[in-house]
């Protein structure tokens, strides 16, 4: 089996003695070597789905089948940096000793635009810079499967675009599979090979997008049509 397969996955939480069903039976195929984007409104269960795939939580029902052995990395909504480590040490946090040489680490630092901040501690960085360190930490691990939970939400427009390009480059060069959660339709269209819309704990629609060598132009007629479709499925009134 290639990729990851979710079969009728369910998850609920008890909130103030009340059972809240977050995922009501998700069945999904996450293909290998491509970017699958989970799209939905806040509170629809996107993050829960990602945490279940990342084995940070166990589902109440259903099954998650993993294909080949994956080297996984997770970029959380918050940077989650170790406050006692500087930028370089945080980036190397998941690595075994000397897994990367200093040039490779420097190249990753350059990619995320943090040159000159190698020795800085997290409390000395802005929120966006911290998030870039968190992304660099995941990239340095050289994973074959990356889970990303709204990783670019804290970044400015230019950095976000740069990071999106970098993500596409890494995905292509390493052949990594990426499960990407966002609530931005444009970001989903820019990055996704497959877009899955979740609503109230269920998959409402799936779209398979054509693979492109470069960042797609969202002003193309084709993408405007995709966007219209997605907006209709999300029940967004504009």
């Amino acid at each position: 089996m290639a990729g990851i397969e979710l079969v009728n996955v369910q998850k609920s939480y008890v909130v103030e003695k009340r059972n809240v069903q977050v995922l009501s039976g998700i069945s999904l195929q996450v293909p290998e070597e491509s970017i699958t984007v989970i799209l939905g409104k806040s509170g629809c269960g996107k993050t829960t789905l990602l945490r279940l795939v990342g084995e940070l939580e166990q589902p109440d029902g259903g099954e998650i089948r993993y294909g080949a052995v994956h080297k996984t990395a997770f970029v959380f909504q918050e940077p989650r940096l170790m406050p006692w480590l500087n930028v370089t040490d945080n980036i190397c946090f998941g690595l075994k000793k000397q897994a990367l040489d200093s040039l490779e680490i420097q190249s990753i630092i350059y990619t995320v635009g943090l040159e000159g901040f190698e020795r800085a501690y997290p409390f000395q960085l802005s929120g966006g810079m911290q998030q870039r360190v968190s992304i660099a930490r995941a990239l340095a691990y050289q994973p074959t499967f990356i889970m990303m939970d709204e990783p670019f939400a804290a970044l400015d427009y230019f950095t976000r675009e740069q990071m999106q390009r970098e993500l596409l480059r890494v995905q292509k060069s390493q052949g990594a599979s990426i499960l990407f959660v966002t609530h931005s339709i444009d970001e989903a269209l820019l990055l996704g090979h497959k877009i899955v819309i979740i609503e109230e704990g269920l998959i409402k629609a799936e779209f398979d997008l054509p693979k492109s060598e470069k960042l797609p132009n969202l002003l193309d007629e084709e993408f405007i049509e995709w966007k219209r479709n997605i907006i209709q499925n999300l029940n967004v009134h504009i």
């Binding site: 940070l56 990395a73 997770f74 989650r80 946090f93």
Partner: peptide, 10 residues
Amino acid sequence: KKLLEVGDVF
């Protein structure tokens, strides 16, 4: 706990 989860992930 959020930092411990980072360890879990790696």
